[in-house]
């Protein structure tokens, strides 16, 4: 084995410099190589989510996306689904901060008449085994929303609330907070849908 380099100041600085430079260059290369696939993976995920929640379409909803304000400084992204030139649905990417831990992101799909077609969960950090039942893969709870048209009395939602709060949605067992948050996200998306019609 070759003798160890001595720990002189010059040696230490030079070695660390070389190691860091090589590391940074390698990472820059890997970053460049994976940049495209990472973007595509994100787009694909979004496109799949849109496909799941609105009726069959043949346009590119992501390319035609627009932002709708639902309150001062609060905007949501919308993706129109069209077949031919006819609008067949609108997917709204919505979120709520009222979740158990962190934001819950949903993609809510509307039919042209304002009724909910389907909902898919994009991202959440709710408790596994409890709050994550909002995911289609874990339970069909979120199907309860399909076909409903959210109603409001002033700013207050009327029907999209858990039954405990006087709404029509049975909360997921032992998970009132997550269920309430889910309703909140849906109601927010409906305001975006309504405002987009104006």
């Amino acid at each position: 084995m070759a003798a160890k380099k001595e720990s002189t100041f010059i040696n230490m600085v030079v070695v660390l410099l070389i190691v860091s430079t090589v590391a940074a260059t390698t990472l820059a290369f890997v970053y460049q190589a994976t940049k495209g696939p990472i973007e595509q993976a994100k787009l694909k995920k979004q496109k799949n989510a849109i496909k799941k929640v609105v009726a069959d379409f043949d346009n590119n909803p992501i390319a035609e996306n627009f932002k709708v304000a639902i309150a001062e400084g609060d905007t949501l992204e919308c993706y129109p689904a069209k077949k031919g030139d006819k609008l067949v649905g609108l997917a709204v990417k919505t979120y709520t901060k009222k979740g158990f831990s962190g934001k819950i992101w949903l993609m809510v799909g509307y039919n042209p008449d304002g009724s909910i077609n389907n909902i898919s969960v994009l991202e959440h950090k709710e408790t596994p085994g409890l709050g994550d039942k909002m995911e289609k893969a874990k339970s069909d709870w979120s199907n309860k929303f399909n076909g409903l048209i959210p109603e409001f009395k002033g700013d207050e939602p009327v029907n999209i609330k858990v039954t405990k709060d006087g709404g029509v949605i049975d909360a997921i067992t032992a998970t009132t907070i997550s269920s309430r948050a889910f309703c909140d996200a849906v109601n927010r998306s409906f305001i975006a849908f309504k405002n987009s019609q104006k």
Binding site: A2, K4, K5, M12, V15, L16, V19
Partner: peptide, 10 residues
């Protein structure tokens, strides 16, 4: 691979 090139202290 690089063990012999690295001064002990760093």
């Amino acid at each position: 691979l690089i063990k012999s090139q690295i001064p002990d202290k760093v």
